[in-house]
Design a protein around this nucleic acid. Sequence first.
DNA 1: CGCGACTATCTTTTT
DNA 2: GATAGTCGCG
Length: 719
Amino acid sequence: MNSLNSSQRKIIETINGPILVLAGAGSGKTRVITHRIVHMIQNIGISPSNILALTFTKKAAKEMKNRISDMMMNQTDFDQITLGTFHSIFSNILREESHWLGFKSNYTIYDHKDSENVIKQILQDLNLDRSLNYKEIKRKISEYKNNLYGLFYKKKLINHKVEESITKIYKFYTKRCFQANALDFDDILLHTNYLFFYFPNVLKKYQKKFKYILIDEYQDTNLSQNTVIKNLVSQHKNLFVVGDDAQSIYGFRGAHLSNILNFHLDYKNAKIFRLEQNYRSTNYIVQASNNIISFNKNQILKKIWTNNEEGEKIKIYCASSEEEEAQYIACSILSIKRKTNLQFENFAILYRAKIQSHIIEYSLKKKNIPYHIYGSISFENRKEIRDFLAYLRVIVNPNDEESLLRILKKRNQKTVKNILSLSKEKGITVYNIIQNIENYKSLLRINNKTKNKFISLIFTIEKLRINAEQDNAYVIAKNVINFLTKKNYYNYKNEDFQSILDYVFQYVKKQKELKNHGDTSLFGFLRCFYLEIDEDINHHKENKVSLMTIHLSKGLEFSIVFIAGLEENLFPSKSSLSTSFKIEEERRLFYVALTRAQKKVVLTYAKHRFIWGKKKENTPSRFIHEMNRNFIDIENHHKHILEKKKIHSLNHFHHVNDNKNYENSKYLKMKKGIKVFHKNFGLGIIVELQNQNQIALIKFQQSGEKRIFLKLDKLVICS
DNA sequence: CGCGACTATCTTTTT
DNA sequence: GATAGTCGCG
């Protein structure tokens, strides 16, 4: 407690009622939430089992768990705290309460690919496959679910023609998932909403249990999550949320700023605290990131400040290509490391899109720099792992059609197709048809050889299933791997599965160590696999440079941070350019990236980059232009790094910002009151010029007030 | 009936 | 450049 400042302490000691903490980056947000939990248990005497603590990412949940367990070393009942991601916690509750909603507790969790496959099939069945794109539909359905359309907002479902067909697909999709006894990620929250909405007695039970609810990164909640919480706290009103509107970066998942902006309306008498002192970064970094976020119109005004040293200016480097950019980063790491006493683990390389990691990885490898790419293993994308999981899933839930089809497709495709249509026609599950394949032999027009293939398969699965009732997940996993490596149908080797088998082993071991009721079942493992396992855990403390997307970096800090690929179309991403709302989210993402750094930030961009096998020329990101010049340091000589390429990498940025050029340009003609035309927003009038006339605040007839960067957005003067 | 070559589309970001 | 889906050949 002594390590906290007075405002932090005050927040921790206010226990009851709704509380919102607006916490800037690096202000000790996680410390506050973890200390508060410990204080509640150790000093106030609140029972750990009455506490519910929620996060959004697995990493954040893990981090919080570790910190609390460190602080409560000798306290034995700390694992009674319900702590985890929204999805993980509520999937557990749904397992307990599934009977109310009419599905079975052994449900399967459908991941993205599963959902997409279901949608593809529906499109085929409905003969719609040409007009609509399955990814778009997936996104829409997700949007519907996250916004609870249909539960509270029935009207919204009938809008345009497109929406109508999507609604239709949505219904089929729901039906299929129900028949397969499967939930997708969004369903976990949606069904919890159904549960609490239609079964008040169940809601009451959990209201009674969770007397104190804490939520980290509250700005990332979507309506579905927020509604679950609203219901849970409606009795005791002890809700403690921490968030920073400037770090809201999950809009694509339905997160909406309004949840944090309207907190005081949703919860009357809410106490609002602010944490504005940054303990993490140098003054230059704090100032520069404040400056960047000020370009957003939608924000709560905050004054983030620091007592830390001034530090170094933010470095900007223009590379000729993505290769050279990567080389520059690798060389910089080595040279900074030589000059300081920093270790590799103090460095992070952040990027907008996962795809950028390849080339950086390559250059680090060449220089023998140890690194770890977070979020890269992605088990669920590996073919053999998906095959393996398909068996596990069918063993737990034979109605899991996606998995069953995956297994069957290795065999006779045509027969599988026939089985599928027969299943639809008769309303019998695929699994049941195969179980009784003898009866359908003539309908399916198959010979004895084919028939026997299917029979032997189902026999194997059934054998595994019967054992599954007593065996733990590890035993079953080993059996499945034995089967897969026996070469009957697959060419897999044992070592293909070593890593996943390790995870199963770890899982079972950990469950056995738990005092009360560890869940060593196969279902438990699968649930954990999809909702809890963080594949990067093991790499956390090794001395390696961290590579990750900015999204993954949230909540972390590093001495030195490189942010790569600051180019228009990449960061901000191409698909965000169309609306100012999306651009603002990109800018918040950039803000998150900047504020990860303690000592130093290096921004890099490349003039050329290969995209889809084609060389493309990119202009520097608008975010680079937005950087206040007092805080930046432009490196335009490559000095010790590349001898040859000097000529090619003339600094583009320097060019654009050359003062003389700038004064001669037509942009100077931009004045207050001038009528202009913008290709996206139409006609407007300049209200104000900002940042040395680089930015115009324009009131558009159609789309309202917007900030336009004069060098990037082409404006035509109309008056 | 299964496999290999060809082409269309794709990339944000996470649970 | 990578992957999924389609088509044609053996």
